[in-house]
């Protein structure tokens, strides 16, 4: 498994996760997100990033948790995945994590939670385990977006 050695750690529902820093374009505070019809519940909507329209997912909903209360203070991570910019809403952005290869472990054979399919590795630090998520997997949507006739199987690739 090839992983970059720096990661951005963030919190979702009191758990700590991280994504490879190389994918992170920027972090923005709360922003106006417009919902998009026909999309699954984890698709939070679109936002305007300096004139560019970017799709944003809600990580809580992606993990099968309750979507965050819209009044709660949130951050949006803007990631670059396969050349596209995509956003994801997290509870808070915490710190940058530097890990050596030997500190990364293959993900444990999770019981099939909605989360497990997004996991790339697990990082073991002195105090805790941090789940390293794959940006690509987070933004691969096998779920059909539309309940209508022309449902695309949208995969960001």
């Amino acid at each position: 498994m090839q992983l970059n050695d720096r990661f951005l750690a963030f919190t979702v529902d009191q758990e700590q996760y991280a994504v490879a820093l190389v994918n992170v374009r920027e972090v923005i505070g709360e922003s106006d997100i417009t919902p998009v019809p026909f999309t699954p519940h984890f698709m939070r909507g679109i936002l305007n990033l300096r004139g560019q329209v970017i799709s944003v997912i809600d990580l809580r909903a992606r993990f099968g948790l309750h979507p965050a209360d819209s009044s709660a203070e949130m951050s949006t991570l803007i990631l670059e995945v396969n050349g596209s910019l995509l956003g994801m809403v997290v509870d808070s952005v915490d710190f940058v994590l530097r890990m050596q290869a030997d500190q990364l472990e293959a993900p444990p054979a999770y019981e099939a939670t909605p989360l497990s399919r997004f996991v790339d590795a697990v990082a073991r630090t002195d105090r805790q385990l941090i789940v390293i998520l794959s940006s690509e997997k987070l933004f691969s949507f096998e779920e059909s977006f539309v309940t209508g006739a022309r449902s695309p199987s949208a995969v960001v690739a």
């Binding site: 998009v36 698709m43 679109i46 799709s55 596209s84 995509l86 933004f139 977006f145 695309p152 949208a154």
Partner: peptide, 18 residues
């Protein structure tokens, strides 16, 4: 504005405007 690849093909949504 074009919608992202992940949102293309949704029926009746032809784009976005700011």
């Amino acid at each position: 504005k074009k919608l992202g690849k992940e949102l293309q093909g949704l029926p009746g949504l032809s784009g976005a405007a700011i």
